[in-house]
Structures are given as structure tokens and as C-alpha cells.
Amino acid sequence: MRTLHRIFYAEILKLKRSRLGFILILSPLMAAMLGVMYNLNAEQPGAWPILLSQMAMAHAVLFLPLLSGVLSAFICRYEHANGGWKQLLSLPVSRTGVYISKYVVVATLLLATQLIFMGAVLFIGLLKGIAEPVPWLMLVNSVLNGWLASLPLIALQMLMAIAWASFAAPLAVNVILTLPNLMVIQSKYGIYYPWGQPSLAMLPQNDSFGINVSLETLLFVIGGSFVLFVLAGLAYINRKEI
């Protein structure tokens, strides 16, 4: 574990020359476009939550789950490509440390996307001249909860990305399981669906979907599945034959 920060810095270096920046801004950019096109009455009360709902729709329901898979696959891709695993894991590193480092990198990148998204909401809101003051707490909560709810999903995607040498296979699974999101999150089992959890946590409560889940329940489920998926990932990487 003493070597954890070293593995982490090595992981950061491996991201060089990747088109990561583009991947990170893609979803906030599209959200911004949706925000611009939305015909918002800037004077009405609750204009900020309405704008947030509009902008977070595609981002939380579609892009956030997809992104967690893309980033996980991305960070394992160059290990699968040219024998990276065998070189990395025959160094004096613990496999647990390698897993955690890769996980932390993906989680950090996803947090960056969330912050860019928040910036986009602020920018559009101010552009449209919303009369009410900026509801900082709501924005930060939405962005952070969306991020927290993505953590179990990242663990699950990381497990698939480590197990499968193919870049496309985990992404295909991810897309297939992300698509029914809109339906699943409106059912009462929605909170148990890892692909749906980010949108449940991120969209403002009691909004137009009629989703009504207490945040406490959601966080409890998320915490439980996070522990479960991380343990599964650690068990897998520690047993994996390279």
C-alpha cells in the first residue's frame, strides 16, 4: 500500500497523448447545447432546478453510465494491448494497489466531467439571465450525488474491463444495459439498477419523472453495491492468471 501513490502517478502518465479531454467535455457540451435550445422563462421561480433537469437528462441517464464504462475500458485498454499486464504485475506492486489506482483515476476523471457539467449549467443559467440567485447547494449536491452514484458502476465496469481483453465487449454490454435506463428508473426496482443510480441521484427530486426515492435509501443501496463490486473486482484481479 505504500506504493499506491507511485502506481497512481504511473497511471496518470499513461494517459498522456490520449484524447481524454475530448471524452470528458463531450457530455457537458451536449448538455450545454440542450440548455441553450430550451425555452426557459428566466423570470419564473425555480428556473434553476428546471434548467438543471433539462440539462442533466441526457447527461445523467445516458452519458454518465456510458462514460464510467468508457473510462474503465480506456484505462485497461493499453494494458491488454501489448502485454502491459504482465509487465506491470511482475513489478513489485500489489494487485490490489493496481486495481485501486486505476479505480481512483477513473473516479477522478468522472468527477472532472461532473464539475465541467456544473460549469456548463452555471454558464447557461447566467447566459439566460435567470433572476433567482445561483442555488449553489443544489448544484453541488446534484453533481456530487451523481458522481457518488456512479462509483459502484465504475467498480462493475472496471471488473469487466480487466477481465475482457476486448475493448468493445464491455462497452457493448454497457450500452445495452444503459439504454433501458429511462424505463427502469421509473420502476420501483430502479434504485437497485447500477446503470440507473446516477440519474436517480442527480436529477432533482420530485421532478417531472415522478421519481421519488429518498436520498438516504439510495445512498444506502449505492454504498452496499459499491462494497460488493469493489470486493468482486479485487478478488478477480488477485486471482487473474496473466
Binding site: 499513461k14 497523448r17 490520449s18 493499453y78 494491448a81 501489448n82 502485454g83 502491459g84 504482465k86 509487465q87
Partner: peptide, 9 residues
């Protein structure tokens, strides 16, 4: 081990 490992990018 076997073929050399590297990060192509």
C-alpha cells in the same frame, strides 16, 4: 516475458 510489453502511445 514472451513478446516485449510496451505502451504504444
Amino acid at each position: 516475458v514472451e513478446s516485449p510489453s510496451y505502451y504504444g502511445h
